[in-house]
Design a protein around this nucleic acid. Sequence first.
DNA 1: ACTCCCCTTTACATCGTGGTAAAACCCTGT
DNA 2: ACAGGGTTTTACCACGATGTAAAGGGGAGT
Lengths: 328, 328
Amino acid sequence: MRDVAIAAGVSPKTVSNVVNDYVHVRPETRALVRRYVEELGYRPQAVGRQLRRGRTGAIALAVPGIDMPYFADLAALLVSAARERGLTVVVEQTDGDIEREREVAAGFPVRFADALIFSPLSMPPSELEAPRHDTPMVLIGEHGGAAAVDHVTNASVDIGAVAASHLAASGRRRIAMVGYKENRPKPVMEQRMLGYTQGLRAAGLPVDRALIRAVPEWDRQPGADAVDALLAEHPDVDAIFAANDVLAIGVLSALHRHGRRVPDDVAVVGVDDVPESRFTTPALSTVAIDRAFVVEAALEMITARLADPGLPPRNLTAPHRLVVRDSG
Amino acid sequence: MRDVAIAAGVSPKTVSNVVNDYVHVRPETRALVRRYVEELGYRPQAVGRQLRRGRTGAIALAVPGIDMPYFADLAALLVSAARERGLTVVVEQTDGDIEREREVAAGFPVRFADALIFSPLSMPPSELEAPRHDTPMVLIGEHGGAAAVDHVTNASVDIGAVAASHLAASGRRRIAMVGYKENRPKPVMEQRMLGYTQGLRAAGLPVDRALIRAVPEWDRQPGADAVDALLAEHPDVDAIFAANDVLAIGVLSALHRHGRRVPDDVAVVGVDDVPESRFTTPALSTVAIDRAFVVEAALEMITARLADPGLPPRNLTAPHRLVVRDSG
DNA sequence: ACTCCCCTTTACATCGTGGTAAAACCCTGT
DNA sequence: ACAGGGTTTTACCACGATGTAAAGGGGAGT
C-alpha cells in the first residue's frame, strides 16, 4: 500500500480510501490511484484489515470428516452461503475424536475465525455448555441436547419413527436397525433408535433387541459388515432401517452380495438423502434432512450473535421428510 | 494479552515470551503468567501474530465443488496433512465458472492465505501462467498443461488408454465413452478421450465418434442421461468407459433401469476410485488416482516455494492404477 | 478581499504480536 | 566492594490497514 501511495504521490490513507470506495475522493485522484494499484498488482492484505477491524471474515466449520457425503454437501452449501455474505470458510476435521473436539470447542489454540459451526460427535454435551472463549459457536446435529448453546438440531426421534412406520406400513414384520452402538451411544443414535422402537410399537410390532445392530462408525463398510452378521443370525429379516445413508449403501451392497433382492426380499430405508442415494440400485428410500435450512439457520444465528453477544441461545430444528424411492 | 500482563504484573512481552516458550523466563514467572492466561482464558489472536510474522498459516483450496466426492476426499486428506504441518485450510468453490476462477487465480480480491491449491476447469491454461500476485500457487489436475507453474497432474491419456485396453482385452467390441464435451473441451476430457481412442486402436478396434457421448458436467445424473441417449441410438454397446466415477455411477444406474445386466451385457469402467465405487451394484471397476500423492506433492511444492520463491516451477504426475471389481 | 462551508487529503494513533536491543537483575570470583 | 558475565525482563517499534480529527483547497456569497 505504501508503494502505491508513493508511486501515486498521495498518502497511504488516500489509497485506502480509494480501495474502500470512500465517497469524497476526487475522480482524478481515484483514477490515478487505481492505475497504480493495477500496475503494481496491489491487493489489500486481509491481515492488516482484520487487525484494524477486529473481524477476520472467516468462519470455521468443524466436522468429523469433510469427506462424509452429508458433511461434504453441508460444506458446499456453507461455502456458497458464506461467500454471498462476504465470508470465507475454514475447515477443521475432528474424526469424531474427543480430544480434537475439545480442542475445537475450547476455541483452538489460536483464534482464527469469527465464529464456529461445530458438529460434535463424542464430547459430553455438558462440556459444550460453557465454552471459555467468546467466539460465537453454533452446534449442528443432535449433540447439543438441551444445552444452553445456539444450535440447529434434527428431529431424530421422529426421523426414526417415520422410517420404521413406513416400513411397517408396507407390510414388513422383521424390521432390523443398523447403526446403534451400545457402549458409547451418541445422542443421534439414541434418538433414531428410540424413534425406531416407537415406530414399531405404534404398528403393533415387537421390538427385538437382536435386530438392533451395532456398528463401529457410520460408513459404508460397517453397514455392509452389520448385514453379514445380521443375516447369519436372523435370515428372516425383511426390512432394514439404516441410521444414515452411507450405512444404507453398505447395507444395499451386502444384501446384493447375499443374493437378497431389494425391495422384494428386504426393504431398506436410510437417512440424509445424500446425492448418491438417488443412484444406488435400487434407488434408496430415505428420510431427507433439509441441509439448506441447517446452513441458513446456522449462519443466521452466527450473524445475530456477532451483532449482539448477549442474545439468549436459540435452538432450531431442521425439517425432514420421507423420500420413497425403490428400496422400500 | 495486555490484560494478562497487567494481572500478572509483567510486561506484555513477557506474556508473549511465556506463550511462545521462550527459554529465558524464570519458572515462577512462567507459572504466574500461565495461571493468568488460564484464568482470563487468553488465546493468542492469529491476526496479530500473522501481521507480525507475515504468514497467515492458512492455505486456500479452490475447487469446482467441495461436494464432488473426488474433491471432498482430497479436501479431507489436505486438511489432515495441513494440520500436521500446523496449517489451516480455507475452502473456496468456483463451480467451474470462469469468472470465479479468474478471481481465484488473481489472488482473490483480498489476500487471505499463504498459498493456493487450485483445480481450474474453465480458465485457458495460458492465463494461469502469469498470476500477478506473489502467493505461491499449485495447480492440480490436467489443466496446467506445459504452463510454467507448479503443478500436480494426472497421466490422463494413459488413464483413458488403460481403461479402454482393459475393456477391449475382456472381449468388448462396442466400447462407448461418456464424458466428453465438444464445444468447450477441458484438457482432462481431451486427454482421457485421446487415451480411449489409443486404447481402442491398440486393440484393433475402430473408433466410432457416435459412441463418444457428451455430458454437460461430470455428475451422476448427466452420466445416466448420456446412457439413455446412447442406448436409444446404439443398443449394441457392450462397454462404457466413463470419464470419472460419478459419471460411471449414473451410468450404472441407467443401465440397471434399462434392464441391461452389468457386466454381462455391458461392462463399465470409471476413473478416480471414489469411496462409493466399492459399494455400487455391481462394484465399479475404475482407474484409481493416488490422491494422497496429489496432496503430499502439492503441500511439498508449496512449502518449497514459500521457502524459496525463485524456484523453477515443477510438474509432478500422480500415479494411477486399474482397479478391477465386478462391473467390467 | 474576506468569511464560511463543503469537499479532499493528510497526520496520527491503534488494532495484537513478536523481533531487537538495551536495561535490570543476579551470581560468582577476586 | 566491584568487575564480569549470564539470565531475565522490558521499552520500543513495525507489521498493514483504517477510524478520527484536523488541515488544506476551492468556490460562492457578501
